[in-house]
Design a protein around this nucleic acid. Structure first.
Lengths: 207, 207
DNA sequence: CCTACCGATCGGTAGG
DNA sequence: CCTACCGATCGGTAGG
């Protein structure tokens, strides 16, 4: 459905995996808060409780670490969205799927905030080779939304005169911008989604 | 109306001002593309056609330069929005003002893309003292939208059950996310606004 | 996973 | 506005 691969897990011991995850958790938060260029490997090492050189036991470069962290951010979003859509009954319309996808997207942003924020905030500032691969993931995720919206139009649920590209970017934009909200104002993904959904689809749906 | 001060212009010769602007133009683009931390003063100097040390003839630090560039980004948005709203006839409703503000916001994003993108993309990654001042500007701009939306609700043009905070962030989010669009898909600010406006306010307006 | 270190580059300054 | 330079810090490596 959404074609975003999870970075392959090569054979590692449980301890190695736990340390790796700790490094990535700290990296995600630091990249999110300070940006890619302003976060040094020494920052990350200190936050994880080790020395800078030791990071190279787990990652071969800053770029590899960043790519894995940022790509995991989008992966989590895609995974939640997939779950939410697949949980729908067979009778679900394409618009039902859009709504479920919105909830899934918001759920991932709230649950895995450090990773998803790091992706959204650092995507543009990461070295070109990483950005290229992250871009492919984004396009795959975009294509999924494109399909949902197109199906909605084809089945007569969304007015045919609606600009599908604008609708897609508007939805993704308002969803992603929730990361810039004061954290206290969110409410649950379902509450937030119901507000967004009513806002947009009250008029966009054919009557 | 919107209380965002333009950085004061101390007395400078015409040539100094032109060089300053050249430095800021290049900085805006580099900050936007590479991020604050990954953009060195040597990058900026090279792009402007001078040596790194010479920048200190115009700016006393990287932080000062960044603050001026980023704050100008939001200033331009506020200025365009102000113009657009003030150009309305006296009979204009609060919702008319929202629509005009949307056009103004989009116009600024398209016209001054380097500055506005640099603000949006680097805001979170800039040193704390700068961020604090930029945050005050954002809050002032936010308050302006809050007022427009509240007036719209009070005059019965927007349904009273609409969550005003969600509406405000949703609007700003979809507007700002246009910076992430492939550039070719924009169309004019007016075209884009008409799509966004219809999308949101078809249902949000009281019937 | 640490110590100790490499060359490169950083923001910034002195002196002209 | 440039040359020449400062101490600090960067990503990364060797050897254990």
């Amino acid at each position: 459905m959404i074609n975003i691969e999870k970075p392959e897990e090569t054979q590692r011991t449980a301890i190695q995996q736990r340390t790796r995850k700790a490094i990535m958790d700290k990296s995600a938060r630091l990249f999110r808060d300070q940006g890619y260029g302003s976060t040094s490997l020494r920052d990350i090492a200190a936050a994880t409780g080790m020395k800078a050189g030791s990071l190279y036991y787990h990652f071969s470069s800053k770029e590899e670490l960043a790519e894995e962290v940022l790509s995991l951010g989008l992966f989590h979003v895609a995974e939640r969205v997939k779950e939410a859509v697949e949980a729908l009954p067979e009778t679900a319309t394409p618009v039902d799927k859009i709504r479920a996808a919105m909830v899934g997207h918001l759920t991932a942003l709230l649950e895995k905030g450090d990773y998803t924020s790091a992706n959204i905030r650092c995507y543009n500032h990461v070295p070109a080779p990483i950005k290229k691969r992250l871009k492919a993931d984004r396009e795959s995720y975009d294509a999924f939304w494109e399909g949902l919206i197109q199906s909605s139009v084809e089945s007569g649920l969304i007015r045919p005169d609606v600009d599908q590209i604008s609708l897609r970017y508007a939805l993704i934009g308002m969803l992603n911008w929730t990361l810039e909200w004061p954290a206290t104002k969110h409410g649950s993904p379902e509450e937030l989604d119901s507000k967004f959904f009513d806002m947009v689809f009250g008029n966009t749906l054919a009557s």
